[in-house]
Amino acid sequence: MRPFQYNRARSLADASGIISDKGALAIAGGTNLLDLMKLQVEIPEQLADINHLGMAEIADTEDGGLRIGALATNTAAAVHPRVRSDYPVLARAILAGATQQLRNKATTGGNLCQRTRCFYFTNVDQPCNKREPGSGCGAIDGIAKLHAVLGTSDQCIATYPGDMAVAMSALGAVVHIAHEDGEERTVPVADFHCLPGDTPWRENVLEPGEIITAVSLPAKVAGTQIYRKVRERSSYAFALVSIAAIVEIKNGLFSRADLAFGGLAHKPWHDPRIADVLIGQVPSEKLFDEAADILLSGAQGFGENDFKIPLTRRTLHAVLAQAVEQAA
């Protein structure tokens, strides 16, 4: 671990000012950042500790939604009565991630910003374009079982590892971002993370000095909510594939199908074409296959992770069948 300057931020503006410098990072729960600092994957010169800025509140919004403060812990969000009653897909997604100890410490904003678990990213003695631009990608032709099959580039095939953001993406949640100058902007969770392209080091749309202040969820919608995470061990493992689904069936036809996928890409994967295929149609195996065809039309495996493509298809079948069954 490299020596660094610790700053306890006194205000959002203070924090924002500190982290606009290159080599400065914000720290909240630290469950990911501290590990990366020990490995020297991250070597910040300055840390802005934002834990004392409030922002932990979970409150109803005027439009009937829910605003989750950036510093609300994963545990607090998962057990919140309104999250449990109106957004169960989010509660389940959060509880499917990490361990109780980590969730007690990890925050909502930090969870959105967590880095990939690619083995080559976390080993500083291996090439990684994300960590060291231009050094190459160790995972391509390497050990890539957990890696992406959608939206990859020849620079990077890492996945976004989280669960929470997958559910938020399906729910149409919005990230609130504050800038040093006091301006606030909002970005849908579905657009918050980036694809690797030629800039794999850029994982989300945050600009220098910007800090997540909250995530807001729209008002509850009708339908069944499902979070399905497929993994090798039943806890404390990243998703091979995960699906967050909010599905409504009216008069025997799909009337809502908001789906997002984890474990497949550098970001929670959201493909609006899936809803287009499903809505207004009678559920059937054939229809599920059509949805899977569209989702996976651009999918490309890298040998070890080829299985994710048929696994995603099968898991989609399971989730849609479960939604139909629960609607009946």
């Binding site: 083995f119 080559y120 291996q126 390497g142 061990r233």
Partner: peptide, 21 residues
């Protein structure tokens, strides 16, 4: 899991090497 090129052990912590929980 060992890298097929340089033989280094890839999954070298308790998050990535899956003992039963």
């Amino acid at each position: 899991e060992f890298d097929p090129r340089d033989g280094h052990l890839v999954n070298c912590d308790l998050a990535e090497y899956h003992v039963p929980v």
